[in-house]
């Protein structure tokens, strides 16, 4: 029943934000969907000359011009050049020049924290991507904020003195890793009265603007009262900046994997700051094979491994392992 637990937060605000960037004709089609579909909507995919596709948490469906969900592409609504151009204009407020940085990264964050991924013809400048022209594909991702999913997990990550242990969240893609990290950050920084945890200063390096969903530098998601966010900053540099400038007790970052990240992590741990970060992967053995992470594991500093999966729906915590003994501390905690 995790599926339903997700739907509580999404529809209202985030969905309205999405409608505001859709041209009237597309907006009308999508608005006709029954409420239960709208609340489970994860993605809207627009590809020029191809069918309109909606992604739900249990698979994707084509949409017809009458707002019916179908499985056959040939009767669905076909996205026109005009549609793509209109969405591009609405997303960019008719000012592509203002989005140069965003185009280089391939996505735009909207107020409200939703993200729009872009594809098209890439223009290079030497070795770097300069911009994308002839935008032909858009993926509107409705981001979700599920408050409270980390409540059961938090006690496992605190030691006797309520200090945060160095923690690694391990998860395959689309298993709710970012959502869980966001809620953990929120709980760590605001505190959790139920377990008499009063909260601490958290520094968050949000390289891909996914965790806090910043718009113009302001977090659009609730990341807690004591959280400082560096938006769009490379993790290694960002962690050092926060460490020096903002005096955090916990540093959080998404998707660690590069050699330089690991070097900084070593430094952060030596500075006495707790770490909270995620890694892409499905098992501990698998990620140990990556050179950078292998080095990190050999330092034996990480105290808790949290492994996510979808065995009981998105966001299932499959296992929590103790870093020093390798013992399982508790598993199969559902997200709800």
């Amino acid at each position: 029943m995790q599926v339903d637990s997700y739907s509580q937060d999404i529809p209202g605000f985030a969905f309205k934000q999405v409608l505001s960037i859709l041209p009237v004709n597309l907006g009308d089609i999508i608005k006709r969907l029954p409420e239960k579909y709208i609340s489970n909507l994860e993605e809207i995919r627009l590809r020029q000359g191809r069918p309109l596709l909606l992604g739900f948490n249990n698979g994707d469906k084509y949409l017809t011009a009458n707002g019916e969900l179908v499985s056959e592409p040939n009767i669905s609504y076909i996205i026109t050049v005009e549609d793509i151009q209109r969405v591009t204009r609405l997303v960019s407020k008719s000012s592509l020049y203002a989005l140069e940085e965003e185009l280089k990264n391939g996505y735009i964050t909207l107020p409200g924290g939703c993200r729009v991924g872009l594809t098209g013809k890439v223009v290079m400048d030497g070795e770097k991507v300069k911009t994308i022209k002839y935008i032909s594909g858009l993926n509107i991702r409705i981001s979700r904020e599920v408050k409270g999913i980390a409540e059961k997990l938090l006690p496992y990550l605190l030691d006797k003195n309520k200090n945060v242990r160095h923690t690694l969240l391990l998860s395959p893609p689309r298993c709710g890793k970012t959502t869980l990290l966001r809620d953990l950050v929120r709980l760590l920084s605001t505190g959790m009265p139920a377990i008499k945890y009063s909260g601490t200063t958290v520094g968050l390096v949000d390289e891909r603007s996914e965790i806090a969903g910043c718009y113009c530098g302001v977090p659009q998601k609730d990341v807690g009262t004591r959280t400082d966010v560096l938006d769009g900053c490379p993790k290694a540099q960002g962690m050092m900046m926060l460490l020096r400038a903002m005096g955090p007790n916990v540093l959080a970052a998404d998707e660690i994997g590069k050699q330089e990240d690991v070097k900084v992590i070593e430094e952060v741990i030596n500075a006495g700051v707790s770490l909270l970060f995620t890694v892409h992967g499905s098992t501990l053995e698998e990620i140990t094979q990556r050179p950078a992470l292998e080095y990190l594991f050999n330092l034996k500093v990480i105290e808790r491994f949290v492994i996510l999966g979808r065995s009981r729906g998105v966001g299932t915590i499959e296992d929590i392992k103790c870093g020093s003994t390798g013992k399982t501390l508790g598993g199969r905690i559902c997200s709800s």
């Binding site: 960019s92 407020k93 008719s94 000012s95 020049y97 203002a98 140069e100």
Partner: peptide
């Protein structure tokens, strides 16, 4: 406004 501020057109 456009070149140095990268301000979106309506605001500019």
């Amino acid at each position: 406004e456009i070149i140095y501020g990268a301000t979106p057109l309506p605001e500019a």
